[in-house]
């Protein structure tokens, strides 16, 4: 994120212009939608003059227009209001030391779930998330994680008839 202060150093502009990233995202999304729409074939049809193309073109244009307007708005010092909540404290900046390990635990689960099975990957997901969020009671956290994974595995199996992958523990569970 670039943190350039403008020459004037206005308070509104001081916080950096990372919100331009959102404008870029909207612009990219709009471009992709329009590009995708361009390769749709519109068959001649009296009863369907709208065709498959019309709505994507409208939506893509809407995204492009909002992207431009948002960029202008941000450059003029406009800021989106970050969401507040009961457990949210906006006085400190985003804490990436918590978010990145959380995302890591999430990705690990994606990689492991089909191979190692839900009981293992789910335990790691829960335990990793608790650790990332500041839980340091390793034994209790570990026991809770295993219990959660096992309970959901059997709960889904017996309660809902959904067979979560057993993975390498296939014979044991």
């Amino acid at each position: 994120m670039t943190q350039h202060a403008t020459a004037a150093g206005k308070p509104a502009a001081r916080k950096g212009r990372s919100e331009l990233g959102i404008a870029a995202l909207l612009g990219a999304a709009g471009a992709v939608v329009l590009w995708d729409a361009s390769r749709l074939v519109v068959p001649y049809s009296v009863s369907d003059p709208v065709g498959p193309k019309a709505l994507p073109i409208i939506i893509g244009s809407l995204l492009l227009v909002t992207a431009v307007l948002l960029a202008v708005n941000v450059l003029r010092g406009g800021r989106g209001q970050a969401e507040e909540g009961e457990d949210v404290d906006l006085s400190h900046p985003a804490d990436w030391k918590t978010v990145l390990p959380l995302a890591g635990a999430f990705v690990l689960n994606i990689l492991l779930i089909d191979v190692a099975g839900w009981v293992i990957s789910g335990t790691l997901l829960f335990w990793g998330s608790v650790w990332a969020l500041g839980g340091r009671n390793y034994v209790r956290d570990g026991l809770v994680s295993v219990a959660m994974a096992l309970l959901t595995f059997y709960g889904f199996y017996f309660g809902l008839g959904i067979k979560l992958p057993a993975g390498i523990l296939a014979g044991i569970l």
């Binding site: 999430f106 779930i113 839900w118 997901l125 839980g135 809770v144 959660m148 979560l164």
Partner: peptide, 25 residues
């Protein structure tokens, strides 16, 4: 309730629910 458990639990059940829809990673 300890906050780590609460938010880890939300992520845990979110993953579980989304996976259970089609059982695909």
């Amino acid at each position: 309730i300890p906050r780590p458990y609460l938010y880890a639990g939300i992520l845990f059940f979110a993953t579980l629910g989304a996976y259970a829809v089609n059982l695909q990673a």
